[in-house]
Design a protein around this nucleic acid. Sequence first.
DNA 1: TCTCGATAGCGAACAGTGTTCTCTCTTGAG
DNA 2: CTCAAGAGAGAACACTGTTCGCTATCGAGA
Lengths: 270, 270
Amino acid sequence: MTRMNRLAPRRERLRAATIAEIKQTARDQVADGGVAALSLRGVARAMGMTPSALYRYFDSHDVLINELCADAFGSLADALEAAYAAATDDPDWARRWLLLARAYRRWAHTHRTEYTLLFGPRTLELEKSDRCGDEMHRATGVLFRCLIEGIAAGAVDPSHLDGQLRPGLRAQLVAWGVDEGAPISPAGLAGALIVWTQLHGFLSLELFGQLPPTFDDFDDLYDQQMLDAIVRIGYRHPIDFASVTAPSPDVEPVVAGAATATPATNQATA
Amino acid sequence: MTRMNRLAPRRERLRAATIAEIKQTARDQVADGGVAALSLRGVARAMGMTPSALYRYFDSHDVLINELCADAFGSLADALEAAYAAATDDPDWARRWLLLARAYRRWAHTHRTEYTLLFGPRTLELEKSDRCGDEMHRATGVLFRCLIEGIAAGAVDPSHLDGQLRPGLRAQLVAWGVDEGAPISPAGLAGALIVWTQLHGFLSLELFGQLPPTFDDFDDLYDQQMLDAIVRIGYRHPIDFASVTAPSPDVEPVVAGAATATPATNQATA
DNA sequence: TCTCGATAGCGAACAGTGTTCTCTCTTGAG
DNA sequence: CTCAAGAGAGAACACTGTTCGCTATCGAGA
């Protein structure tokens, strides 16, 4: 352990670089052809390696995929955190929410293959406390944080949902809130779940091609649903749907600029 | 062509039976192990056949899967149509909607593997006007019919959504309505899309294990979201959330009794 | 009743896959 | 300078989808 601090990392750096290259090659392979087209032999071939050599870095085909999932969730979480951070100075909470929701959708669009990887059916069981689950939790956490802050700041008042909660459901919500350490009423949690469900449902339908095919553009429909959703859970101020959606939705550099924030995950956004 | 009407079908009957057996065996194989576990060789092995013999009935592995998807959509559509038909005598439209929504969820639960098959990412491109797409359209059609009838009957008044529709979005909605032949306002279509998105989003999250894991039961949460959704799009009458959800949700035989309606698809529900 | 074309099925083969061995070379630390 | 740890190669095994050629059987027309 003399000057190992400098030299020992040498080998580990090479190893990390190889891992990164494998992952990137795998992502490319997934990009054209879907998850089913990801083959270890193909990755090895593209890298000029032997298939067996890959097993020095990944125990199996499935753990590679799992690792890609975790990276993708991390990338999504980074994008959302950056978008939310960039929007904190906006005094209009509805607009903050819309920017965050748009950031989510933009990530889903620019990382289509990763999105299908994440939100398609889980073919392989990922054990709890996995890195994959942690990163997912981090991503959804940003959404819930935004909603909770809106409620806490008084911009949203979900108390009218109270009457919808049967005793059993209320108890479940309370337990969940305690588990998450979220200082928020059961009605607020129910409202957050409504919005999260709406957002996820829309993107799932859109990206898997199950929205009306006659549409040639779902931007406005998405904005409308995301704003209506917060109205529904008790956003107190009137929203001018025409003006708030006016700024062209595809120029916002919110996500793009944040992709390289943490080097650990920016490979997934390349 | 003498009495071919009687005898020629003999061979075709055998062929149809073999096709049915192949599909059923394939479904079983998918049931434990996911889509990835469906192998033609495995099916052939289980049937005491040669892999190559299967190609007399299905051109390829992907075609088989596509056929299973179409069957599954057909089964879902049957279940929804039966549930909706069974609920038409209920004078309370909200309750009709809830029964239909529950039927959807029950189908998703009892046909978990089919559900993941249908709403996971499309690995293989299904060309338009495919039987798969037709059956899907039939299934979603029931949902939209219910919503449209609620609006037409005056139980739902979505006109407050009108202010949310920017001109471009309104035009798209109108065009879609014309394409579907749905005599309904753009606001009504937007409302129907909101509800459909909410329903799909919930089931997608629930069945793919992305709702809060601390919950031990999502029945009440589902009912709450489905009822809140119709309130949101303008259901005019007050809903007693406590009483309408009171009847135990898992005794309703709506779907089960209807599964054998059409022999063409009941194999998928077996 | 006999014959003939269509059909079902078999068996071998090819190319591809994940995975596991063993064996060799290089590299970095003592 | 030595030597263990790591990286990689290469062969092999069991499996996959798919194709091709062969052989029975079956049903319809003569």
